[in-house]
Amino acid sequence: MQELTYAGKNATFAVNVKKAEEPAPEVTLESITFSRPTKTEYRIGEKLDLIGLVVIAHYSDGSYQEVTDYEVSGFDCMEAEKRQLLSVT
């Protein structure tokens, strides 16, 4: 109990002292997962169709969130190749 005196009057009140809380650990990106777009085969000249592509960011605290502000590169609609490797950034 603590005692407070002011102008000759006294009052008491309880004070609890707690240990300082540890700061929350910094949350960092641990990995990403994705589902492939519905369309994966194209003819020369067709535009890339990303319908069905879902990108998920996974964080160190166990949370996850869909990423919507990504860019896809590496697609060349004029190049007939058996396989193209695309990058999502």
Rank of each mutant, 00 (worst) to 15 (best):
E46N: 02
G8H: 07
L53S: 05
E66H: 02
S31E: 13
K39I: 06
F13I: 02
Y70M: 01
E81D: 13
K18Y: 13
L53K: 04
L53M: 09
G74T: 03
S31P: 14
Q2V: 15
N16F: 12
R36D: 08
L86W: 11
K47C: 14
T89F: 11
Y42S: 07
T33V: 13
R36M: 08
A24D: 12
V27H: 07
Y59R: 00
R36S: 06
Q2H: 14
M1V: 08
I32W: 14
K19S: 15
E21R: 00
E46T: 01
A7D: 11
P23F: 00
K82Y: 15
G74F: 04
T38D: 14
F75E: 01
M1Y: 11
R83M: 07
T89E: 13
A14I: 09
V88M: 06
T40G: 01
A24W: 06
Y64G: 04
K9W: 14
A24T: 09
G8E: 08
R36C: 03
M78G: 15
D76W: 00
K39D: 08
E30M: 14
Y42K: 05
S87T: 15
V27M: 06
S63I: 06
E22P: 08
I51A: 13
S35N: 11
T38I: 14
G74Q: 02
K47W: 15
I56L: 14
S87P: 00
L50G: 13
Y64H: 12
V72Q: 07
T40Q: 08
E41V: 12
I51W: 12
S60V: 14
H58S: 09
E26A: 15
Q65K: 09
A24P: 10
T5D: 00
K9V: 09
D49N: 13
Q2N: 15
R43I: 04
I51G: 10
V15R: 00
K18R: 06
T28P: 03
P37A: 05
R83D: 04
I44Q: 14
T89C: 12
L50K: 10
T40C: 02
A7W: 06
T12K: 10
L50R: 04
D69H: 09
P25E: 12
A14G: 12
G74N: 03
L48A: 01
G74R: 02
K9T: 07
K39Q: 12
Q84R: 00
P23H: 04
E71T: 08
K47M: 15
V88E: 02
A11P: 03
L4N: 15
E22A: 15
A7R: 07
T68I: 11
E79G: 01
Y70R: 02
V88D: 00
V27E: 05
A20T: 03
G8N: 12
K19N: 14
R83I: 07
S35L: 08
T68Y: 12
N16Y: 13
I32Q: 10
T38P: 04
L4H: 15
A14H: 13
M1Q: 07
T33C: 13
I51P: 05
N10G: 04
R83P: 00
G52S: 01
V54S: 01
E66N: 01
L50T: 15
S63P: 06
E22C: 08
Y59W: 11
S87A: 11
F34I: 00
A24I: 05
S63E: 10
Y59S: 08
Q65G: 05
T89W: 06
I32N: 09
